[in-house]
């Protein structure tokens, strides 16, 4: 499996990179970790005439908390996320996710930015970021703009990034006290995309009710899904079994999976229900232990 020929560019600044993209237009693709793009090129399902490798641009990687956000550079590798102490201790949902993406070798190259920019509903970070209410920072020839994650995914393998824009950072609002999250993924084996997966993030208020609820669904629709009705149903309520079950049912209703080798539509919808309930319970439990 041999990719078609292409021209290779290695800009050393964002400006240079976006200028190149603007010039080359549809013929060009950004290369980050390459773990989605190169497999597609090897199968010749993608044959871009130009690759713009952004790995040589300084400052695009790293994880830090600042200004009330967790700021993740687009080129941050999944393995860095997995090993990050701040992620492990304060963003368990992210930590969970980073451990179940692909396999450990792929995670050494795959980037968080690439995972989102690829717009693949089977990727795991989109659901996570939907649940966390993240914001995407994109830079184009005309400057920087921020996109709320809820309006980022516009279709299958499509995002609101313009062809000449580069995703440079992901910002996740730092969760208040008594917050917790969990990511539960059913995969057929390690390295597989999810049959279905659910990201849940909750904040429990002083009265014991859910102050904030975020629920994102992986690989059960043409785009990643934010289960807004399920979130709304739980918000303001105590996360008891009945409320969790109700939210889980609403999440299942929000899913629009298609049948494939991983299972039928009914199966996947039911998985969403089962996994949502389990993820919410785990998130609530974690919120309780995090004051």
């Amino acid at each position: 499996m041999i990719p078609a020929a292409f021209e290779y560019h290695t800009p050393s600044t964002i400006g240079e990179a976006t200028a190149l993209l603007a010039k080359l237009g549809d013929d060009a693709k950004v290369l980050s970790g390459g773990q989605s793009l190169i497999p597609l090129m090897k199968l010749r399902l993608a044959s871009p005439a130009h690759l713009v490798d952004i790995n040589g641009i300084p400052g695009l990687s790293g994880i830090r908390e600042a200004d009330g956000f967790l700021r993740i550079g687009a080129l941050t590798r999944e393995s860095e996320l997995e090993e990050s102490e701040v992620v492990r201790s304060r963003y368990p949902l992210l930590h969970d996710t980073s451990k179940v993406i692909a396999d450990p070798l792929v995670r050494n190259l795959a980037t968080v930015g690439g995972n989102l920019a690829h717009g693949d509903p089977a990727n795991d970070h989109p659901a996570t970021m939907l649940a966390l209410g993240a914001e995407i920072v994109a830079v184009g020839p005309k400057g920087e703009r921020r996109v709320p994650i809820a309006s980022f995914f516009t279709g299958p393998f499509a995002t609101s990034l313009r062809p000449d824009e580069i995703l440079v950072e992901i910002r996740i609002p730092s969760p208040p006290a008594r917050s917790g999250g969990a990511y539960l993924k059913l995969e057929r084996k390690v390295g597989d995309f999810a049959t279905a997966a659910v990201a849940a993030q909750v904040t429990i208020g002083a009265n014991g009710a859910c102050e904030h609820v975020g629920i994102g669904l992986t690989n059960v629709g043409l785009t990643p899904i934010k289960a807004t009705k399920a979130e709304a149903a739980l918000k303001g309520k105590a996360p008891d079994e009945a409320a969790i079950k109700r939210a889980a049912e609403l999440a299942a209703e929000a899913s629009e999976p298609s049948a494939d080798l991983r299972g039928s539509v009914e199966y996947k919808k039911d998985l969403v229900r089962v996994l949502t309930a389990r993820a919410l319970r785990k998130a609530v439990e974690r919120a309780g232990s995090r004051r």
Partner: peptide, 13 residues
């Protein structure tokens, strides 16, 4: 120092 799959990287990288 990082283990990676060398079939999913270009030599130029």
């Amino acid at each position: 120092g990082q283990p990676v799959k060398s079939c999913t990287m270009f030599a130029v990288q």
